[in-house]
């Protein structure tokens, strides 16, 4: 067997391995954090913004780059919205004790 490997085959290898990694990592997520899991996966899947940036910035600007710019806008909602709402939820899962501490610190300052 000779010749170079088709990029699609390499992509398929990456894909299958990533699904396995995903499977094992996700089963370890504690059920209490399933809602933050959904919002953070939302943020992660909006890495599609990379594709949108490539679509928006070809050397010759045309109809496709307009769609790209729109897609950047849509994905950007998710990037910030997804990570920030996850952060906000995870703050709520802080232990009460730690919260009391920080409040005490605030009073000191």
């Amino acid at each position: 067997m000779t010749g170079t490997i088709d990029p699609t085959v390499i992509n398929l290898v990456v894909f299958v391995l990533a699904v396995f990694v995903g499977y094992h990592v996700i089963w370890n997520v504690t059920p209490a954090l399933h809602t933050p899991l959904m919002s953070v996966t939302n943020a992660i899947s909006s890495v599609i913004i990379v594709g949108a940036i490539l679509a928006a910035g070809p050397s010759d600007t045309d109809f496709g780059s307009v769609l790209g710019v729109v897609a950047v806008g849509l994905a950007a909602v998710n990037v910030l919205g997804g990570f920030l709402v996850t952060q906000r939820m995870l703050e709520m899962f802080k232990k009460k004790a730690r919260k009391v501490e920080t409040e005490a610190e605030k009073e000191k300052a």
Binding site: V14, F15, V21, Y23, I26, I48, G51
Partner: peptide, 15 residues
Amino acid sequence: NNTMLIIAGSLVGSS
């Protein structure tokens, strides 16, 4: 042909 998109997408898909 973007492996990062494939990896991120697969993680989310399996999740």
